[in-house]
Write a protein that binds this DNA or RNA. Structure first.
Lengths: 142, 142
DNA sequence: AATTATAGTTGACATCGTCAACCGAATGGA
DNA sequence: TCCATTCGGTTGACGATGTCAACTATAATT
């Protein structure tokens, strides 16, 4: 038996990340929406005049990768690209009605998954758990 | 401006997952080790007579995918495959010295990243945060 | 002994993101 | 004003990664 080389916190974090990440949840947050698409769609829905590159920034993709993921979302009918009036180089990406439905549905499913897990954490209240995760997410940006 | 369609907890969880996941941390937990490889290596290092499929199970991969990731690790010199004596169909995957070094190094880097974030969470002690994450990881398996 | 189940491998394939080269539009200094 | 540069976006070629289905070999069952 090899000794357990990695620490508890690493393993816990990785398990969480793997479970809620791109490969977990059957590889899709929602029917027809991968995790990066989920993130992109959220970014688009909360950003006015969202340029293609803005999507790339929030995902850590190159501008090429940004174009590709936006195109995929467009093909699925969840967003549309509109040339900016102020600057003709920029494409403003906007979420469609269909996109909003899918985003909302993905969110529900994601939250539901989280609640299922949180319900099993007998030593921690849902509120506490949520607070820690929110604080952690906030710390990522600081 | 589209209304923010998704809930805080979804967004927080996703941000964490994205940051500590396959795409975050420069796409590699450690030089020359992707996130699935990290997980596989940990599984291998803590499992006696680890079959190729066992690696697949812990990642949620098909047996084909398991073969491929083990082969990749073997090519990098981090594991070796040994035919089982009891059952000639089974390949026991074992971590090498080099593999242990890399795993340990990836772990350090991962823990360090976590501590950097945790240090910024002024409202939550490191201990509390760790406890919540451990409990959450445990709940995933229950 | 013949059938069936299991572990693993492999070829063909789809997905996805990067890199580098490119286009067109904006901008700024001579 | 003209030209060089910068900037947003797109595209072709590519590499990485995982699945599916077909296959081999070994074990277990009947």
């Amino acid at each position: 038996m090899g000794k357990a080389t990695i620490s508890d916190i690493s393993r816990s974090l990785i398990e969480i990340v793997w479970y809620f990440g791109p490969k977990g949840l059957n590889g899709e947050c929602c029917k027809n929406l991968t995790m990066p698409e989920f993130i992109a769609l959220d970014k688009i829905s909360t950003t006015t005049n969202c340029a293609v590159q803005d999507v790339g920034y929030s995902l850590g993709f190159t501008k090429s990768g940004a174009t590709r993921i936006v195109n995929r979302l467009e093909k699925k009918g969840y967003v549309q690209k509109i040339k900016s009036h102020e600057d003709a180089r920029i494409c403003c990406v906007e979420i469609t009605k269909s996109g909003e439905r899918v985003l909302s549905s993905a969110n529900s499913r994601y939250v539901e998954q989280f609640h299922t897990i949180a319900a099993k954490m007998s030593d921690h209240s849902l509120t506490d758990t949520v607070e820690v995760l929110k604080a952690m997410a906030k710390a990522l940006k600081g």
